[in-house]
């Protein structure tokens, strides 16, 4: 608890302010009133932010969790204990959505490696690297709905992608209609749409890389893969960690638009993600309490992922 004698950040901030007006204020009033005001000031200053978080974040969160223990439909408002959670873990759709979260985690290295590799090529100044730098970033400014619509056309059964496959003698692939392929197609489109941002972060990381190290490695006769493996990757470890964290968050929280436009959760429920499942149960099935339970589970998953990421970032900070 900050008191008049401790060094709270707020007090420090006040102390570093201009000295003259403070003296004037002190001379005008009694010492007791001053010290009480000084004691209260940090609380008052923090209060709006704390209130906003408590009223608009924590309280609704508590309400939501509480709501997940009530029933839907006929049992609306009644406490049903863990029934909703039991229903969730029996629902093949929800299990499929959790499985897809696992798939996203498995695909994360690919989503990080692609921008990393391309950024390396740009850094190493392959011919036309300036053009590529802007071209790669371009999809990042398009909304998921537009991207979804574009790829709906490209990946349609009688669309250009299959026509291209046809010209090289390969059979058509039902990109968005085959349950074994659809999720990869959507994740692929998501990576295509978002890797530009990670690429920019990588390029910023490269800017801090010591060029003399690479030159030294080259003089020593190291091949390109060895330069990448032993010089570039260690030098970029913090950038890579940052990209891993942000890419993971992006995959877990911003695929809804693409799923909605491209597959609608199908075929056969193979492209559900928890977010889409929550929206579906709440709105389409009229089961808000079940959706709350799913939200609570998703919140816990994100909490674990988030804490793990904070731990990773902290460790990276310490290495520094």
């Amino acid at each position: 608890m900050p008191t008049a004698t401790t060094d709270s950040p707020v007090r420090t901030a006040l102390r570093t302010g201009p000295v003259t007006p403070r003296r004037r204020a002190r001379s005008g009033r009694g010492a007791a009133g001053r010290s009480r005001a000084e004691r209260l000031a940090p609380y008052v200053l923090v209060a709006p932010a704390a209130l906003i978080i408590a009223v608009f974040r924590l309280y609704p969160l508590g309400l939501g969790v509480n709501f997940s223990f009530t029933g839907d439909g006929d049992r609306n408002g009644q406490a049903v204990g863990l029934d909703n959670y039991a229903a969730l873990f029996e629902d093949p759709l929800f299990l499929a959505s959790m499985k897809n979260v696992g798939l996203l985690v498995l695909l994360l290295p690919v989503a990080v490696a692609i921008p990393g590799l391309l950024a390396t090529f740009i850094y190493l100044r392959v011919p036309g690297h300036r053009v590529y730098r802007s071209v790669y970033f371009f999809p990042a400014v398009l909304s998921p709905v537009i991207i979804g619509a574009i790829f709906n056309l490209l990946l349609a059964f009688d669309g250009p992608a299959n026509a291209l496959l046809g010209t090289v003698g390969l059979g058509p692939v039902d990109w968005l209609g085959d349950p074994d392929i659809a999720m990869y197609a959507v994740v692929g489109v998501h990576i295509w749409a978002t890797f530009g941002m990670a690429l920019v972060v990588f390029l910023a990381g490269f800017a801090t890389l010591d060029a003399s190290l690479i030159d030294a490695a080259r003089v020593d006769g190291a091949s390109l893969p060895r330069v990448v493996r032993h010089v570039i990757v260690p030098g970029l470890s913090r950038t890579i960690q940052f990209v891993v964290v942000t890419t993971m968050i992006g995959m877990l929280t911003s695929m809804f638009g693409l799923l909605y436009v491209m597959t609608g959760g199908g075929p056969e429920g193979s492209t559900y993600l928890p977010e889409y499942y929550i929206w579906f149960q709440q709105g389409q099935m009229g089961r808000p309490a079940l959706a709350s339970a799913a939200s609570t589970v998703l919140f816990c998953v994100m909490l674990v992922v988030g804490l793990a990421q904070i731990a990773v970032l902290r460790r990276a900070g310490r290495e520094d």
């Binding site: 006040l14 008052v44 209130l51 906003i52």
Partner: peptide, 18 residues
Amino acid sequence: MKRRALWSTALIAPLALY
């Protein structure tokens, strides 16, 4: 200074809430 901070807090908080 402090009084001003208090006043602005009092003014800003409802605005922020609104």
